[in-house]
Amino acid sequence: MTTRPELRGDTGGLLPAVAAVGLFVVMAAVFLGAPVGDAAGFPQSAEVANESLGSGDLTANASVQSVNGSTVAVVEAEGGNESTTLANDTGVNASVVFAGGQTYGVVSDSVSVTETIGYAMFGLTDQMPADLQSENFLAVFEMIDLVLVAALVGAITLARREEVGTVVSLFSTAEDASVSGAVAADGGTDEDDAADDSIGAVDSPDGGDA
């Protein structure tokens, strides 16, 4: 009695598998030799920068302003206003936050890959960040939606309970329900067999004759 590992018996010859391995070797050689170049990559998502504006809760006196092409946090104090540059760009998502006894100017650059995929799927191209673009997939989304719904509705409409004796389906009538015999989806048993089945009224587990 053998105890060593053996190849499965249901393989249809191993020559095709060798051909597949050969295909892999060819593909790997082509890919590793191809001049692909460096990846452009995605912008870093949710990059957050903190700037301390001072101790204590200054949120009532502080505001975020755009000055000369940059975003600054301005804190109003008795000795004059104090500005802290948060970003060298306008239109960034900046806010003033009080946390841990200090007030911070927080800039969160929310370039999110997942969000942009969502915008692309629903055709919201104007919402996409400028440095992370995608095609508009709204038409594709609707088409796949329609096809999947049609498949589901078709499956439910055509479904029958596959038991010998009664026909139970979405659009079955009283006449259908009274028909005895095997349903067509059991592989097409002969009329005689169907009659025998209905008399015997014993369902085989596989639903019909093999």
Partner: peptide, 22 residues
């Protein structure tokens, strides 16, 4: 590097192909 992703993809594809053929 992108080449490594391509080799991984080729390996996965050929495993699938071998499965279908055998």
């Amino acid at each position: 590097p992108t080449e490594y992703y391509l080799v991984l993809s080729a390996g996965l594809f050929c495993i699938g192909l071998a499965g279908i053929l055998t």
